[in-house]
Design a protein around this nucleic acid. Structure first.
Length: 592
RNA sequence: GGUCCGGUAGCUCAGCUGGAUAGAGCAACUGCCUUCUAAGCAGUAGGUCAUGUGUUCGAAUCACAUCCGGAUCACCA
């Protein structure tokens, strides 16, 4: 049982005893900094039933706890707030339980499995900042869910077919002159992206010309020669035209090669990758089934629909009149495939909030169809990354390219590190590794510290910080501690829990308290699908440690017990920081 | 227009299962490196929590309304 749980029980018993009131859900909050104590119980709500003033109630419960609770040393009451301080033996026991628990912050298997689908790129252009948020969120969530007891499968659904890919292919065929990643020195995904942009340029010119000749803009957009041709390409692809399929294979191959480099660089991997070219025909059987079950209905033009007005949604098309699939058809099929592949208890999709409606519809359909996995489906909807100028638009060239951003961050990390001159003795490979760790630490932390649901702002003018509320701040705290632990080891000092006579310092209590919060934060992060909970925790812990570090001396303290205790505290903090950052996919350096 | 999400310090964000004088970081200003890494610590300054009404002993937090911003409502994905 946790300290908090025992305290709540003690408070419940005290209330029962003195006021004869059954209080089931006792809520404790952390005591605000300006008051003494660590846990606060608010008594206002008891005032009516207990027929006493909040302050009196606080006094009575506080006195009772001081006498009978095994944990409480003393208390103070401010208005209706009962602030509780803990005995040194409580702190010692708490710390001991953390120190001796090698799996601190991770939970045993809960017997459930979950699939996290994320990343899901299109193969016509390179990854951008928005994809990074998606990738980091998905990767981190997978780690957090694993730590909280789930069996996790990470999947990626690659959108490797469709009109957008055909646009790149067309522009390449017409303007490419046989260019390759090797001949151009461009990463494959960037090469494909280049032709996507070229397509758009030419396409716009064609529209302009048609409009000049008197055509309406809307019609011109449909009738522009390259648009018609791209549609022809798509059709040819679907019919298996060898030349088209060959080009498609060639260009997608380049793109995958480029993606692989990016994924390697940012440390993201998947257990299984699904390709839309393999799944886009799936789902039609489900449409048939739904028609038989009268979940769907057919309109006169042969298109198939579902009426979701009861769910507060609308009528929704599930199959085109010509019998071809739409997005939702595919998703029905892919979800069925995922289920038959893995039989997970839960399915999560990390997809931007622009698709909120789509997933509402998808899940509603799965329920109507009576799918066993329907209730386990959940859309992890995250907000867009905006620029000061507004939304990123790939066609308008306002996107922040992922590879470029990462290499800029690495350069900044290198510059900053060299300025400080602390690692001048590093081999160049060692230094490079550190720059990568810091750059990705800064970038990942930047994108993961914000509540996923909220849209966030990225200003390319102001590069991402390495000071203050950042990844490198936390990494720095870790490196600092590692340095201490190395020194301790050399001096033969063993981390130890102090004896009963040892008077625990306030800064030490703060640290133990911060540490004790970790497991519950992991669970909160898992339940809310919010890596930001872990981000904020890691920052708080690092901050508390730095305060401790500034306030007390570790090796200079005359009391050998204090020295060994502080080394033990440092050790556990470093391990907890390491663990928390690992949940965010952030690496820790031994020195920086 | 319907639905959904958001509006907290100059900027970026916490806090939102109701509780104490609303917290961080950045930017600004002041101190602290002969002592374990100053990518740090301590401090100053900065707020009508979009607005209004309501519920409550108590509201940034809940409800309703209004204003502002965004997303979505495709036989696109």
């Amino acid at each position: 049982m946790t300290i908090e749980a025992i305290l709540k029980e003690d408070i419940r018993i005290a209330i029962q005893k003195h006021f004869d009131v059954a209080a089931d859900d006792i809520i404790l909050q952390p005591t605000k900094k300006e008051f003494e104590g660590f846990y606060t119980f608010v008594t206002f709500s008891l005032s009516k039933t207990a027929r006493k003033s909040p302050a009196e109630i606080g006094q009575i419960i506080g006195t009772e706890l001081q006498e009978s609770s095994s944990l409480v040393s003393h208390f103070n009451v401010v208005q209706g707030f009962l602030n509780l301080s803990l005995k040194d033996s409580t702190w010692r026991g708490l710390f001991d339980s953390i120190l001796t628990n090698p799996a601190f912050g991770t939970f045993p298997s809960n017997g459930e499995s979950v699939m996290v689908e994320f990343s899901s790129p299109n193969t016509n252009k390179p990854l951008h900042l928005g994809h990074l948020r998606n990738n980091f969120l998905g990767d981190s969530l997978a780690r957090i869910l694993k730590a909280s007891g789930y069996d996790v499968v990470k999947t990626c659904l690659v959108n490797d077919r469709g009109i957008h890919i055909c646009k790149s292919m067309l522009a390449y065929r017409e303007l490419g002159n046989g260019e390759t990643p090797e001949s151009s020195g461009l990463k494959g995904d960037h090469l494909a992206g280049k032709y996507y942009v070229l397509f758009d340029k030419e396409y716009k010119a064609q529209i302009g010309k048609l409009v000049e000749e008197g055509m309406s803009e809307e019609l011109a957009a449909k009738k522009a020669p390259w648009m018609l041709e791209a549609q022809q390409l798509l059709l040819a692809w679907e019919q298996g035209d060898q030349a088209v399929v060959d080009l498609w294979n060639k260009m997608n191959g380049w793109v995958y090669d480029g993606f692989r480099q990016t994924y390697d660089k940012i440390g993201v991997a998947f257990d299984k990758t699904y390709y839309e070219s393999n799944t886009y025909l799936l789902g039609k059987d489900i449409i048939e089934e739904g028609l038989k079950k009268n979940v769907f209905f057919r309109k006169d033009d042969n298109s198939v629909w579902i009426d979701l007005k009861e769910e507060g949604l609308d009528e929704k098309l599930v199959l085109r009149g010509d019998g071809t699939s739409v997005y939702i058809t595919q998703d029905l099929g892919t979800t069925e495939l995922k289920f038959s592949d893995f039989h997970n208890n839960r399915y999560l999709w990390v997809v931007g909030n622009e698709q909120d409606y789509h997933f509402k519809v998808l899940f509603a359909i799965l329920k109507r169809l009576g799918r066993p996995y329907a209730d386990g489906c959940y859309h992890i909807s995250y907000g867009m990354v905006d620029l000061p100028s507004g939304k990123m638009k790939s066609r308008e060239g306002t996107v922040v390219d992922a590879d470029e951003l990462v290499s800029q961050m690495i350069q900044t990390a290198a510059d900053r590190t060299q300025e400080l001159g602390k690692i001048d003795d590093f081999e160049s490979a060692e230094a490079k590794k550190l720059y990568d760790q810091l750059a990705l630490g800064a970038l990942k932390y930047f994108l993961l510290k914000v509540d996923p649901k909220k849209r966030m702002l990225f200003n390319p003018e102001e590069s991402i910080d390495f000071q203050g509320h950042t990844g490198p701040f936390i990494q720095y705290t870790y490196a600092r501690i590692r340095s201490i632990l190395r020194k301790a080891e050399q001096s033969g000092l063993i981390p130890t829990v102090p004896s009963e006579n040892y008077k625990i310092h306030a800064a030490e209590k703060e640290l133990i308290f911060s540490l004790s919060l970790y497991p519950s934060r992991v669970l909160t992060a898992a339940n809310e699908f919010a890596p930001s909970v872990i981000s904020l925790y890691a920052f708080e812990l690092a901050k508390v440690y730095n305060q401790f570090y500034a306030e007390v001396s570790i090796f200079q303290d005359p009391d050998p017990e204090a020295v060994k205790f502080r080394i033990a505290l440092s050790k556990v903090v470093s391990e907890t920081i390491h663990s928390a950052l690992e949940l965010l996919g952030i690496d820790v350096p031994e020195r920086m």
